[in-house]
């Protein structure tokens, strides 16, 4: 068994010292412990979501660029941008062709990804970010077709099917090769290993890493991602206010002890569904704890806010998708989460 390994890979695995294990493994003689239950085809089918470049795993169905555009704009554009250009630090999906040798390459589906199957697989397993495994196979076909279209890999009238996905040629597909390391060979020199006069010493770019914990003393609040963002946010607020000559109080609502029952219940929904946008103020969403950003909204009253959150809303600063894309949430859960954000932001 295991005789027909790809030669290149075999060579690299042998280099890792793994060759010996291949022989005499006796793997086919199953079940010496007889532990575990035989998995039924139905149990496997529900979890067997993976797609391979040869099309293995693709479900029945097809999708169009046109249908994909609508899905994409509702479910994906908040993070990835209307044209796949990426919002904030969220992944850029399109463009970047011929940049891989540049100083700052842009690695996108079109410029970098070797297989179209990866796109279907990834959308199906992990997207949209706030509601993974919520899309139908049909929606995944549609959105995959549209992202390929954004990358000019297919035309606008293209119909993506179970049968043609594996035949799509990606622009960068031939440019991956198996790891050749070790690729550099240093030697154990002990004396006169370099010319002291020729040493170039470059210092650290200052001020871009959080070092308060040892430079200024304890920085417990800055230990977390959120707290660091909060600090940055507050600094920015103070800076802006100082330009206007205003006095600033902490923007962190700090009303945690006074939360209503509904708000308390809404915290876990907030953490799992809303925080990804409202925790950072992504693409114009009101950031939790930002009193200024919420004041005008709170004035509209809870019924309006809850309705916008459930049905979706397009405002001056951004788009709120229905239930933030989490259509699995009940109206009550959304209402509680809104209460949590409102009470944390005044």
């Amino acid at each position: 068994m295991f005789k027909s390994l790809d030669n290149k890979l075999k060579k690299s695995l042998m280099a890792l010292g793994l060759g010996a294990a291949i022989a005499a493994s006796g793997l086919a003689n199953a079940g010496q412990f007889n532990i575990g239950t035989t998995a039924t085809p139905e149990e496997i089918a529900g979890w067997d979501i993976d797609i391979r470049p040869d099309g293995m795993g693709l479900p029945e169905g097809q999708g169009t660029v046109e249908a994909g555009e609508e899905q994409y704009e509702a479910l994906c554009a908040t993070c990835h941008g209307l044209f796949g250009e990426g919002e904030g630090r969220w992944p850029v999906l399109a463009g970047g062709q011929d940049t891989l040798t540049e100083e700052r390459p842009t690695k996108t589906v079109g410029s970098y990804w070797p297989y179209a199957s990866t796109l279907y697989d990834y959308i199906r397993r992990a997207m949209p970010f706030t509601a993974p495994r919520s899309l139908s196979d049909q929606q995944v076909y549609d959105i995959t077709a549209y992202v390929l279209y954004l990358n000019e890999i297919v035309d606008e009238d293209f119909v993506l099917t179970k049968d043609n996905l594996a035949t799509i040629e990606m622009p960068n597909q031939d440019n991956f090769f198996v790891d050749p390391r070790p690729d550099v060979k240093n030697t154990r020199c002990m004396k006169n290993c370099a010319d002291p006069k020729k040493l170039q010493i470059a210092g650290t770019l200052r001020g871009i890493t959080p070092v308060g914990h040892f430079v200024e003393g304890a920085d417990a609040p800055a230990a977390s991602h959120d707290a660091q963002m909060e600090q940055e946010h507050n600094k920015e607020k103070v800076r802006k206010a100082s330009l206007k000559g205003e006095e600033v109080t902490s923007s962190n609502g700090g009303g945690a002890s006074a939360l209503s029952e509904s708000a308390t219940a809404g915290q876990s929904t907030y953490d799992g569904a809303c925080k990804v946008c409202h925790g950072s103020g992504l693409t114009g969403s009101p950031k939790i704890g930002d009193i200024d950003a919420w004041a005008g909204r709170i004035k509209q009253g809870m019924p309006v806010l809850v309705e916008h959150a459930i049905k979706g809303f397009t405002g001056d600063t951004g788009v709120m998708p229905p239930k933030g894309g989490r259509v699995d949430l009940s109206d009550k859960q959304v209402e509680d989460a809104v209460a949590y954000m409102v009470e944390s932001s005044r």
Binding site: R89, P210, H213, A220, A223, Q228, E232
Partner: peptide, 14 residues
């Protein structure tokens, strides 16, 4: 003070 820390700008979100 002995805690995990992150560099926020590395990623879009926590």
């Amino acid at each position: 003070h002995v805690v995990r820390r992150t560099v926020p700008w590395l990623t879009a979100d926590s």
